[in-house]
Design a binder for these strands. Structure first.
Lengths: 216, 216
DNA sequence: ACAAAAGTGTTGCATATACACCCATGG
DNA sequence: CCATGGGTGTATATGCAACACTTTTGT
């Protein structure tokens, strides 16, 4: 059935993903560069329309594949953006997601039908973003900081087995502050975020680290 | 500009509110009875379309006034529902809110252009609801239980000054379990949910209670 | 003086923080 | 044998849970 009431006709439901990784101990976010209007030649977070036959989670998955060639990304919704003028085209709300992956283990597309470029950006060197994506990105960073001690949100940032020093550096760079190594280990173990595997690192120039895995 | 792509044409953005109160120590939720199809004669949570010139918060406010005559309600978003078939009319997502008020201090409309009845229902005596509102309501109750010890979500359930025994009974009825009075007081004070006012209850058939107020 | 309801304080346990020393490996 | 980096344990402070007696007021 067609919606005719001009009060709520031509509304769009968009999904948008703040996808993070770390490289050399620095947090980066994945951005794409638009090919078309609006915001032609602007960098933005990956996103797009939710189709009528999809729920928003599925739309996010599809968009990620179409606009960046990335599959099997895990993410979680964290907010909704709905200012009437946030898109110049038509009324459009955004369901915002957050995800974290290991950039070295995925290959993304530099160009698609709708994008002319794509890349990882240091979060303190972000270009001017289109739409309200600046605000969404800031909120996502906030959210990420809150989640790392309560959830396994960083699960896909590491291989199945990883060492505690690796994880420790990552936490310090996300939170941008020093954390005591000993308390860090105890805290993550006790809250069942990570699990000891009994294995040891093989290659090492020093004492081999224990290998851990994420719970869940 | 008109959206023409059939993949994402005719999408609706709805807002929906799980509004709670307590009466005689029992938790109730506010429901309205629909006058028209779809779900004619069914009870549902208050909600409706978000217009093009509104953000979702404003839409929620307006809908609450139009469908129930209620103004100045505070609420917070807690989830999004987007299964493609959740509305039989067209593709429609719901931004879900939660709110808590004192039913004795507001007057609602029993009938409006779109509703034929409205009332407070005990949460363990809920009729079959239209749409997916059963699920939304269950999630809202979950959310409420999680929030009461961390936020002032119950602020509008009480007058400006209230006694601790009043609050205590309310918590017990929301959580559906007994809570130690002494620990309860200490916990809420320490977490800055409530503040001592120095005042005492005036009318009392026994030892007068201290009066507290919510923080924020 | 007693019944009814409100107030308060102490102890133990669990969780978080602060902090310093030992161990394994490679050169 | 030493430099590097990884592992561990203890002591203190803070937050939560369990628990019983005292105070005020009206009758």
């Amino acid at each position: 059935m067609d919606i005719k009431n001009p009060l709520y006709k031509n509304q769009g439901i968009h999904v948008v993903l703040a996808l993070f990784t770390t490289e050399n101990g620095k947090v980066k976010v994945f951005l794409i560069k638009r090919k078309n209007q609006p915001f032609k030649d602007k960098w933005i977070l990956v996103g797009g329309a939710c189709y009528n036959n999809e729920d928003v989670d599925s739309a996010m998955k599809r968009e990620m594949y179409e606009k960046a060639g990335l599959k099997n990304i895990n993410y979680r919704m964290f907010n909704v953006y709905s200012k009437p003028d946030r898109s110049p085209v038509c009324r459009m709300i955004a369901i915002a997601y957050i995800g974290v992956i290991d950039s070295s283990r995925v290959k993304f597309l530099k160009e698609t039908t709708k994008t002319q470029d794509a890349d990882w950006f240091l979060i303190d060197r972000i270009p001017n973003l289109g739409y309200d994506h600046q605000e969404i990105l800031e909120d996502a960073i906030e959210y990420l900081k809150k989640q790392i001690f309560d959830t396994t949100i960083l699960k896909d940032l590491f291989p199945k087995y990883f060492t505690l020093p690796q994880l420790h550096k990552t936490y310090e760079s996300i939170l941008n502050k020093n954390i005591d190594r000993r308390n860090f280990r105890k805290r993550l173990l006790q809250q069942n975020i990570i699990i000891e595997t009994g294995k040891l690192e093989e290659i090492a120039g020093k004492k081999p680290s224990k290998l851990y895995m994420f719970a869940n």
